[in-house]
Simulated scan of single mutants.
Amino acid sequence: MEIRHSTNPSDAKKYDTAQLRHHYLIEELFVDGQIKMVYSHEDRLIVGGAKPTDEALALEAQETLKTDFFLERREIGFFNIGSSIAVITVDGEAYELGKLDTLYVGKGAKDVRLASKDAAAPAKIYFTSALAHSTFPTRKVSVEEANTLHLGSLESSNERTIHQIIHENGVQSCQLMLGVTLFKPGSVWNTMPMHVHDRRMEAYLYFNLGEDARVFHMMGEPDETRHIVVANEQAVISPAWSVHSGAGTSSYAFVWAMAGENYTFKDMDAVPMSTLR
């Protein structure tokens, strides 16, 4: 488990490209036969990816978390970004996840194992885990069952579909929120106009990008923005003080996840275009 400490906006203003990428970009999450995890001190969110091959992979991190099992004091959301079927077993009960399916697992589940239904075609399982002080039931949900919003337009290059999955009016959790945004062909801008929500951090996983395509992820304080160039299946940690927006060289998709003080999706502070620098 890699550890990423919290950062201060005053310090971030001085970061060069390498430092920005070191603090906020997660470059490799899906490695054959492994679980990769990053522990962020931004609201103590864990961002991870798994690509199970021949054997099921146990979700473990005792040395980092100092608990008897991973979900002793945590909850987690799994999201299958690939076309192959993922099999997640929670305390002996197996759940199959197709592409864009989500599995929420609440605090207290002891034995969690990640596998691919077909080892020759490994699944790609993305997950985020937040601290939890109450327990909610395990639940699988397809993207069709999500609360769906159609926003933007082709004229403004941001015609997109937002699927809210783990949130206040969907799959219930303690503080974790998760969903996916899919762009229509010809649209490339996400989260524009920009906003911040100082009461919670956010993590983005960008996917459905071609090998030569990139997303220019915007971050920083509204009047002191920076950018990070992101490739397919890479993730970005966004502190609560930072804007989080992006534009791609082609259409793409991203999984967004949040944790922190407030559990209301609409809790955000809009940033006027005239403020951006």
Rank of each mutant, 00 (worst) to 15 (best):
E2P: 00
R4L: 12
H5M: 11
T7H: 01
N8L: 01
P9F: 15
D11R: 04
K13R: 15
Y15C: 05
A18K: 14
L20N: 14
R21W: 13
H23D: 04
H23G: 08
H23N: 13
L25N: 07
I26V: 04
F30C: 10
F30N: 08
I35R: 03
K36A: 05
Y39F: 14
E42F: 11
E42R: 04
D43V: 02
G48R: 09
G49H: 03
A50R: 01
K51G: 01
P52I: 01
P52H: 01
D54P: 00
D54S: 14
E55W: 02
A56V: 02
A58M: 05
E60H: 05
E60M: 03
A61M: 04
Q62N: 14
E63A: 09
L71Q: 05
I76S: 00
F78V: 11
N80C: 06
G82P: 13
G82D: 12
S84Q: 12
T89V: 11
V90E: 10
D91G: 12
Y95R: 08
Y95H: 15
E96V: 05
L100A: 05
T102G: 05
G106A: 14
K107S: 13
K110T: 10
K110W: 01
V112D: 09
V112C: 10
V112I: 15
R113V: 02
R113A: 08
R113F: 03
L114W: 07
K117V: 08
D118K: 03
P122S: 02
I125K: 11
Y126Q: 01
S129T: 04
L131M: 10
A132D: 06
H133Q: 13
S134A: 15
S134D: 15
F136P: 04
K140C: 02
V141K: 11
S142M: 02
V143C: 01
E144Y: 08
E144H: 13
T148D: 04
G152L: 07
L154E: 14
L154V: 10
L154F: 03
E155I: 12
N158P: 14
R160S: 08
I162G: 05
I162A: 05
I165K: 15
I166C: 13
E168V: 01
N169M: 07
Q175Y: 10
L176A: 09
L176H: 14
T181D: 13
K184T: 02
K184G: 02
S187L: 10
S187W: 08
V188Q: 14
M201R: 12
Y204H: 03
Y204S: 01
G210I: 08
E211S: 08
A213M: 05
F216L: 15
H217P: 11
E221Y: 00
E221K: 00
E224I: 00
T225Q: 05
T225A: 03
R226S: 10
R226I: 00
H227P: 00
H227F: 11
A231F: 02
E233Y: 04
E233I: 06
A235N: 00
I237L: 15
I237E: 04
I237D: 06
A240I: 02
A240N: 08
A240Y: 09
W241H: 06
W241R: 07
W241C: 03
W241M: 03
S242P: 08
S242N: 09
H244A: 04
S245R: 02
G246T: 07
F254W: 06
F254S: 13
F254L: 15
W256Y: 12
A257I: 00
M258N: 06
A259V: 15
Y263E: 07
Y263P: 07
K266T: 09
M268C: 08
M268L: 12
D269A: 04
P272D: 00
R277K: 07
R277L: 12
